[in-house]
Amino acid sequence: MPEPFRVILFIIFVMAFAGLNAAYLVWCERKGAGHIQRRIGPKEVGPFGLLQPLADGIKLMTKQLFIPKGADPILFMVAPLMVMVPAIMSFCVIPFSETFVAREINIGLLMIFAFASVNVLGLLLGGWGSGNKYAVIAAARCVSQNVAYEIPMLITTITMVMVTNTMNLNEIVRAQAGWFFHWHFFRLDISLLMPVAFLIFFICSLAETNRAPFDMAEAESELIAGAYTEYPGMGFGVFFMGEYANIVIGCALSVILFLGGWQSPIPFNPAGFIGVLWGLFWFLLKLYALIFTVIWIRWTYPRTQFYELLNLSWKVLIPFSLFNLILTALQIKIFPWL
């Protein structure tokens, strides 16, 4: 397949994946929430309510794109896109399987983090541009939250880059080949604190994507809908697609960095097209298991306070991730053969 053709195909795939994923994660979330709460969840539209996302989409699209008085129209309209576009861009470098990646670039990890930090800008502009006090409070919270949680997340990522010596996501996954205990999560020989590092990374990705119990930007019982308060119809819909795409990115990074990406837990890797599907299967399985955990947490815990959230980052996560960095560095230096 000629390269430009392949890239276009993949971009279409990525966009479709992001869109469908957002739609069906909403369905999963509602269904999951329903079962956690002893009810059924959506069931009327289509079998098992499977067409519910479609109905939701139509509803959102037919609503008027209303720009409230006092809002900054340009910021107001641009903000949702600034949340969604970078998230979709990040999909380009995620290796779904060994050869199933839109563009394998050697600074993939860096690129994802670069784009991920645009997300918070989108929320800030959306909150500010709405001209609503609740939205402004949410925007302010969002920025301090993201700044606080980016630090431990990046420190943990640096640790992983140190371990694998590369920023190429596919290379990172390849380094975890073999049995499941070759996944970084279980590699206590590299760093004794590896599971802790995973936990830090996972918590940070929850906070970065504004998920419960850290959903300060939305906080519906305090700030109505936070930064999204004034958004009607598809403006809100695009925000939500961006949110869910971000959750997928966060979980995908956790899977790639710690849980072996597309590697199967046993050293069995068929060749050719079957191999691609085999990798895809394992990647998506791990990915959705993590996403389910995210949903599960949301419907189980109450929201933390804002200062507890910041305390957690500055007083617990950052010291631990720094300690982990030093420990890993020492371990690599002292036992270079590992």
Binding site: A33, Q37, R38, A212, P213, W299, T300, P302, R303
Partner: peptide
């Protein structure tokens, strides 16, 4: 009350 604190699920159990 737990809903006010951001926990959704207990409400449904209490309603039950």
């Amino acid at each position: 009350f737990v809903l006010d604190l951001g926990g959704f699920t207990p409400l449904l159990y209490a309603f039950d």
